[in-house]
Design a protein around this nucleic acid. Structure first.
Lengths: 401, 401
DNA sequence: CTGACTTTGTGCCGCTACTGAACAAAACAC
DNA sequence: GTGTTTTGTTCAGTAGCGGCACAAAGTCAG
C-alpha cells in the first residue's frame, strides 16, 4: 500500500491498462495472471476501466482450450485520444493517437518559414489543435518529440542544431503556453497537459511497448539519423534519461583511434564513423548535394556492388565496436537499431553480431541480441506514449474535467 | 496498494527502517516528513520497528526549536547483526555488522593455502560462523563481496583472475552450501540467508548509503585497484547491474588512441592507462617487485616531486577522458572515486574537473561533481548492506524463525 | 511564574483496495 | 445427458493508511 490516498484510486488500474495497451493482456484471465491478483480483483479493475470508457469487454467466446472461455479485452473504439507531434529536420509531423500504439492519421507538414522557438511551437500546437477539433473523440493531452537533448525536469532544449535555437530554450514552458492559447475545441480537457522529450528516447519507448523491444527489461536503442547518432535506454519499462535527461549521448564514443576527425576534437567518434557521411567516405563516393543525404545513405547501405559492400563492412565494424563498448557499460538484454544503423544491420547482420561478440567481455554471458526497429514513425508513437503516460499511471485521471 | 498481501506486513516498514539505517530520519517527525505520511502512521511504524527489536525510541528531549521536541530514533544497541565478508587479492576480511553501516570488529585473514572455490568459500563461511558464535546478538545473514563480476540472477563468478577459478563457477550456490554446513551457533536463523555480489558494486552501495554518495540519485563510482578499473552505478538507491549483472565494465573504454596496448586487443583502454602500472610507466619508474604494487602507486600519486606530478597529470588527463565518456553515457549527478583514482583526485582535483568538464557535452547542464570515497572498508560495508537487504525491504522478516 | 503558542505523539474511526471462499456460468470430453 | 475444467461474480473480511480530536511537552512573551 504505497500511499493509496483517497484521491489516487485503484493502484492496479494503471498497470492493468498498460498491459492491455501493450497487448500483453488480451483476455481477463491473462490480466489476472500478469498482475498476479485474484480473478475478483481483475474483474473489478476491468469493470472500472470499462466504466472510464477506455476498454470494452467482449463477452463472445475467445475459443481455444478447455473450460469457460475468457472475455476478450479490447481498447475502446471511441475512447479518448492524444495528440502526438514531432519536429524533425524536414518538417513537423502530427497525429491523433489512441491507446494501443496506433496513429490514427499521421500528417506531415513542411517546416514553417520562421523556425524560431515560439513560432515553430505555435505551428505544432495549432496543427495538433486542428486535429483535435476535427475529431469527435475526446482529446486528453499532447506529446512532442524534439530532435535535441531535453533537460529534466525543467524541459529546456540544448543545442538545436537545425534551427539555431539557443541552448537552454525553455521549450516545455513555451510549448505549454502555445497549447494554452490554441483552440482545442469543446472535446478537450480544460487543463490540457503537454509534454516534450527527445525523439531517440521516445523511439526507444515506442519500440519497447509496441515493437522490437517488447519483453525486454534492459533495452538499448541506437539510431543514426540527420542529427547524428543517438541512444536511449529503457530499464524495466521506464526510460532511463540520467540525472538531467542527458544520458545516452553515445555519439562521441571512440570507435577508431585512427578514424576521421570529429568536431568534438577527438578522432573516430561513433558519430563521425557511422553516420551517412562516414558511409559515403568509406565508399569513396560523394553524395548528390541536391538530394537528401540520409536517403542516399540508406540506398548505399542496401546496394549490392562490391564497393558498397566493402564500405558497409567498414562502417559495420565500427558500429560493432561502439555497440560492444555500450554493451560492456550498460549490459542490455537487447539492442534495437534504427535509422541508418538499421540498414547496416540488415546489410551485414552476421558481421555486426560477430564484431560485437568479439569485443564483449565475458563471452557468452555478455552476449546480446541485436535486432532491427519495427515501429513506423517511432518518434510520433513515442510522443503519443509520452502524452498517454499520466493516464497509464492513473487511468482515473481521464475522468477529471 | 501494491500487493500488500497479508503475509507482507506494513509497506512503509522497509522504507522507514532504511531512512533510520542511513541516518536520514533521526527523529520521529523527520520520519513523518521523509515518508510523507501522517504522524499517526509514523508512530505505528516506529512502534512496530521497536517491537521487532531493531530500533529504540528515546523519549528524552531532542532540544532545538519550538514546540514539543520529537523523540530520537536510534538503532537498537542489542539488535540483530549480519556477517559481512570480502575476498580480495591479499586475503579475506570478515566482520559482524549492525544496522547503520558500522562494522563491529573487522578481521583480516590471510588467504588459505588452497584457493579453489569450495575451500576458499569454506574458509569464509567458517570465519563468519566463528564471529556469529562469539556474539550474543542474533545473526540474520551473510553477505560476501567478490573481486570478480557476478552474474545475476544465478550468482556465478566470471574470470576470477587471482585464484584461477573457472568462469561460470556457481559461487552463490557453493557459498550457500558451505554456510549451511557451518556451525552458526544457537543465535542464528535456521534458514540462514547468504548472498554474493561484486565488490565494486557493493562499495558503490556503501558510499551511497553511508558515504560520499548520500543524497545522490544517479551515483557513479569508479575505482582502480588490484583487479583493474571497476565501475558501479546506483540509481534511486538501487544498484544498476544491467540485465545479467555485468554492467559498468568500464575498464576498456578507449581514453588514448595512441596509448599503451591492452590485453583486450585495443590500445589506450581506461584500464591500461589509469592503473598502478600506468602511473609508474608515466613516471618512467619501475616499482619494487618485492613490495605490493598498489601501495607503491598510491605513494607515487601523493609524491610532490616534479616527475611524479607530471606522471599524475598524465594519468589524470586520461582518467578525465574516461569519466567524461561515462558521464556522457550515464549522466550521473555525482561521481565517487575510490582506490588509486581517489589519490589521483586528491593530487590534482582542479585538473581532473577541468578535463571532465571540457569533454562533457552540453556544458553546464552536463557538469558533474567528482568527489572522493569516504567509507572505510567499503567492500565489507557493502557486503553488510547486501546481507541486510531483505530486512530493509521487509523488516518483519527478522521475526520469522 | 503564568499562560499563550507551537509542535509532536496517540487513540479512534473510516475508507479503500485488495484477498479468499463459495457459487454460478460457459465451454469441452465422454 | 453427466463430469471436468476454467472463468466471472458476489460477499464478507482485512490490512494499512488518512483524518480528526485531544493530550503532551516544550518555547516564548509578559
Amino acid at each position: 500500500m504505497r500511499r493509496p490516498a483517497p484521491d489516487r484510486g485503484r493502484t492496479l488500474l494503471g498497470p492493468a491498462l498498460q498491459l492491455i495497451h501493450t497487448g500483453q493482456a488480451p483476455t481477463r484471465s491473462a490480466l489476472t495472471g500478469a498482475l498476479d491478483v485474484t480473478r475478483a480483483t481483475a474483474g473489478a479493475v476491468t469493470g472500472e476501466l470499462e466504466a472510464l470508457g477506455l476498454i470494452t469487454v467482449d463477452s463472445r467466446p475467445a475459443g481455444g482450450g478447455r473450460g469457460r472461455p475468457s472475455h476478450r479485452l479490447a481498447l475502446a473504439e471511441d475512447g479518448p485520444v492524444v495528440i502526438a507531434a514531432q519536429i524533425h529536420a524536414d518538417g513537423v509531423s502530427v497525429s491523433l493517437a489512441a491507446l494501443g500504439g496506433q496513429l490514427l492519421e499521421p500528417l506531415h507538414l513542411p517546416l514553417p518559414a520562421a523556425t524560431d522557438p515560439v513560432r515553430l511551437l505555435r505551428a505544432v500546437a495549432e496543427a495538433g489543435a486542428g486535429l483535435a477539433r476535427g475529431s469527435r473523440r475526446r482529446c486528453l493531452g499532447i506529446g512532442l518529440a524534439l530532435p535535441n537533448p531535453v533537460t529534466e525536469p525543467d524541459g529546456t532544449a540544448l543545442a538545436a542544431l537545425h534551427f539555431g535555437w539557443p541552448s537552454g530554450t525553455p521549450v516545455a514552458d513555451l510549448f505549454a503556453e502555445e497549447i494554452r492559447k490554441a483552440d482545442l475545441g469543446p472535446k478537450a480537457r480544460t487543463a490540457f497537459p503537454s509534454a516534450i522529450a527527445n525523439d531517440a528516447n521516445l523511439a526507444a519507448l515506442a519500440e519497447h511497448r509496441h515493437g522490437a523491444g517488447r519483453g525486454s527489461r534492459h533495452l538499448l536503442l541506437v539510431t543514426s539519423g540527420h542529427r547524428g547518432v543517438g541512444g536511449a535506454l529503457v530499464i524495466d519499462g521506464r526510460l532511463h534519461t540520467g540525472s538531467a535527461g542527458l544520458a545516452l549521448e553515445v555519439g562521441h564514443l571512440t570507435v577508431d583511434p585512427q578514424g576521421r576527425p570529429c568536431p568534438c576534437g577527438n578522432r573516430g567518434c561513433l558519430n563521425s564513423e557511422t553516420d551517412p557521411d562516414a558511409l559515403f567516405a568509406a565508399a569513396a563516393l560523394t553524395p548528390d548535394p541536391a538530394l537528401p543525404l540520409f536517403g542516399q545513405a540508406r540506398e548505399l547501405a542496401r546496394a549490392t556492388d562490391p564497393a558498397a559492400r566493402a564500405a558497409v563492412d567498414h562502417v559495420v565494424d565500427r558500429l560493432g565496436l561502439g555497440l560492444a563498448g555500450l554493451a560492456n557499460i550498460l549490459n542490455p538484454d537487447r539492442i534495437v537499431l534504427s535509422g541508418l544503423h538499421l540498414d547496416l544491420l540488415a546489410a551485414a547482420p552476421e558481421r555486426l553480431a560477430a564484431v560485437v561478440a568479439e569485443r564483449c567481455l565475458w563471452g557468452r554471458s555478455g552476449r546480446v541480441p541485436i535486432v532491427p526497429a519495427q515501429v513506423r514513425h517511432a518518434g510520433l508513437v513515442g510522443a503519443a506514449e509520452l502524452a498517454w503516460e499520466p493516464y497509464l499511471v492513473d487511468p482515473q485521471a481521464v475522468a477529471e474535467v
